[in-house]
């Protein structure tokens, strides 16, 4: 018995954020994490005949992300992570727990939180991600220092994480 391509796509959809997050933990870089996820997604499609069921698929995906991520770091000349296998196991386990959160609930809460943010915070994230500006460029554009931009973005992320957690709690969803 093997999984269909539809099942793979469905599983990738369902666990996408957790998988990219785990990839980020392994490679330490958001864009590189996207690359890892894309590679592994396609590899899963390629190997669909060898994957037995959705549970097998999800554990295979995490394992593949781990191997691919470490390999990518090595190939890009980065120092192999100092992370011990035991700690990586912990992250993998935490990532599997977070996968249980309904993705659309989380996304919908996040959108509400983003809507409720002060305009200036939203503008900052928009400059950072929609316009793909580097913090130094944002700093120049907004007449603020680069460290202030770093701090502001970090705080916005923290505030959003807290807001989403709160909204999920109100909705009765475990976060």
């Amino acid at each position: 018995m093997s999984v269909s391509i539809e099942t793979i796509v469905e599983t990738l959809n369902k666990h996408r954020t957790a998988l990219i997050g785990f990839a980020w933990v392994v490679v330490g870089d958001a864009q590189l994490a996207d690359d890892v996820f894309q590679d592994v997604s396609l590899a899963a499609i390629r190997k669909c005949e060898q994957i037995q069921d959705p549970d097998h698929l999800i554990s295979w995906l995490r394992h593949a992300i781990r191997l691919r991520g470490l390999e990518m770091r090595r190939n890009l000349g980065r120092q192999v992570p100092v992370m011990s296998p035991e700690v990586l196991d912990l992250f993998e386990s935490a990532s599997s727990k977070s996968s249980r959160v309904n993705e659309s609930d989380r996304m919908s809460s996040l959108r509400q939180c983003i809507d409720a943010m002060p305009d200036r915070s939203r503008e900052l994230l928009s400059l950072r991600y929609s316009h793909d500006l580097k913090p130094a460029e944002i700093a120049a554009k907004t007449r603020r220092s680069e460290p202030a931009i770093y701090k502001a973005i970090a705080r916005i992320h923290l505030a959003l994480a807290q807001c989403v957690k709160q909204r999920l709690k109100i909705m009765g969803v475990r976060s």
Partner: peptide, 22 residues
């Protein structure tokens, strides 16, 4: 570790929301 993973995933989602806009 769970708190860290939670935050990282939130950044992944936020990044995606804004990336899609642009």
């Amino acid at each position: 570790v769970e708190a860290g993973v939670e935050l990282i995933e939130m950044i992944v989602l936020t990044r995606e929301v804004f990336c899609r806009e642009g």
